Simulated assay, not measured.
Amino acid sequence: MRTTLLISALAGLAAAAPHPQKIDFDEVLGEPTPTQTGPSVDAVSDPVDYNAAVAAASASAAVIADLSSGPSKRDVVELQTVEKRGDCAKQPDGYGPKPTTDTVEAFEAFQTFHNTANTAPTPQGYSLSFKDLSASVNANSYMGLYTFKTYDTIKCQQLCDSVDLCTAFNIYFERDPTVDPGTSCPNPPSFTNIKCTLWGSGVTKEAAVNDGQYRNDFHVVIAGSNGYTKDNPPSPIDGYDGPTRFGGAINAPLNAAGKNTYMGVKYFPGLYDAGKCAAACSANTAYNSRHPRADGTYDKCIFFNAYLLSKNNVADGTYCSLYTQQWGKPYDTNFGQYRGSDYYSVSSSYGFTVKA
């Protein structure tokens, strides 16, 4: 899908009226989505390896490729390949409590899990998004997994705070097999792992959809699942003033000179990363400078609005709207739109302006 950007050669054609700034579903739905939306079923560790600088470089290359009508370079997270051997190999120890009766029903009903989740402290700077669910989060913004010896929301919060762009975590009890289930060891005894997953967006009850999987004939289930989200702005970006917080997405009118300042949109499925929008803004200006109008002028990206786009309250990706001048309140009026029965909402909307 070619990025919806108005390059210099076409800008004059669009000057008579503002380009629609509602959500561009052609752009959103035309991007490939991340293939890993949570940890694999047998993972006990999946450290975060997201590199913001590499992601920004990839975003810049994708914009230039799109504007040049060449093949786009996509920033897609690849799913780790896990060999399902079923060889009865001993699995890493689980340290969580477990019911005396080793069944799925007993695990799900075990009161210790529910008591622990319901009394767990909410870390400072975070809000409780959901509590004591029987499912864990799956979303495009997955960052990594850690396994604990205790159900420790503060430790999970500290891991999130130590990682750039982490804005939420999900902690839960999981029923896992003691050995890798196979034909020689069908439905082995279980133990309890306590897992902490990190996310590059807020987590919601609607995103907690992983309510159990099978490893051969062994049923993995989840209990005591809590989600926590921190409300903090994106980090400052070199070369830009901001971030400036908005209530919704910018929907700018014609400027005082009667000109359209909207340059277009770039969308990045995955975690929320305003740095990708900055890369898109700079790349668009660089491209236009190399392809000016006949009179030598070209459009410069001066301002961008970055926000998290969610589908039915599940984080989807970073939406970047680019402009040739700065905008702010009271033009932050787009809070979301329906596409059929699906509702796409706007959150974490911030503006950045190129430094003078």
Rank of each mutant, 00 (worst) to 15 (best):
A294I: 04
S235A: 09
V220G: 07
G351W: 00
T101G: 05
Q325H: 02
L308F: 06
D24Q: 11
C281G: 11
K84R: 14
N226T: 12
R290H: 13
G275C: 10
S349T: 00
A306M: 07
P330T: 11
V209Q: 14
E108C: 14
I171S: 02
G94V: 02
A208N: 09
Y142E: 08
K73Y: 13
S225F: 09
I7S: 10
I237G: 00
T197K: 13
Q80S: 14
N51Q: 00
N193W: 15
S347F: 10
T261K: 00
V265C: 05
S134D: 15
T81Y: 12
A274K: 00
D164V: 04
A294N: 08
D299S: 08
P234A: 00
A11M: 13
A56M: 00
A168L: 14
N313M: 12
A14E: 14
C185R: 01
T153A: 04
S341Q: 15
P99C: 03
D295I: 07
C281R: 13
N288L: 03
S45D: 01
V314F: 04
T100R: 05
I7D: 06
E105D: 04
G70P: 12
A294T: 03
F130R: 11
P71F: 06
Y344M: 12
Y343H: 10
I23Y: 08
T81Q: 15
A278S: 07
S162C: 01
T204E: 14
T192G: 04
P97C: 05
N226E: 11
L254R: 01
D132T: 03
P18G: 05
I302G: 06
T4K: 11
D161N: 12
S348A: 09
L133I: 01
T103A: 03
E174K: 15
P97Q: 06
P92L: 10
L133E: 02
K90D: 11
T324E: 09
E78R: 15
G296M: 00
C160T: 13
A61Q: 02
G264T: 02
T112L: 06
G38T: 05
G227C: 08
P189A: 06
P18K: 01
T167I: 08
A11L: 15
C156G: 06
N305M: 03
D241F: 09
W199K: 04
V48S: 10
R245K: 13
A55P: 02
A106Y: 01
V77Q: 13
S289P: 04
V54W: 04
K149Q: 14
T150R: 11
Y350A: 10
A279M: 02
V77E: 06
Y172R: 11
T122F: 01
F113E: 03
T37A: 14
G242N: 07
F268G: 00
C301Y: 00
F169K: 07
F268V: 01
Y240R: 01
G70I: 07
S141K: 15
F303G: 03
C166G: 03
I250M: 09
R290N: 09
I64T: 09
V221S: 03
A53P: 02
A356R: 08
Q21L: 06
T197D: 12
E174A: 15
T178G: 11
F148E: 12
T4P: 07
T318I: 09
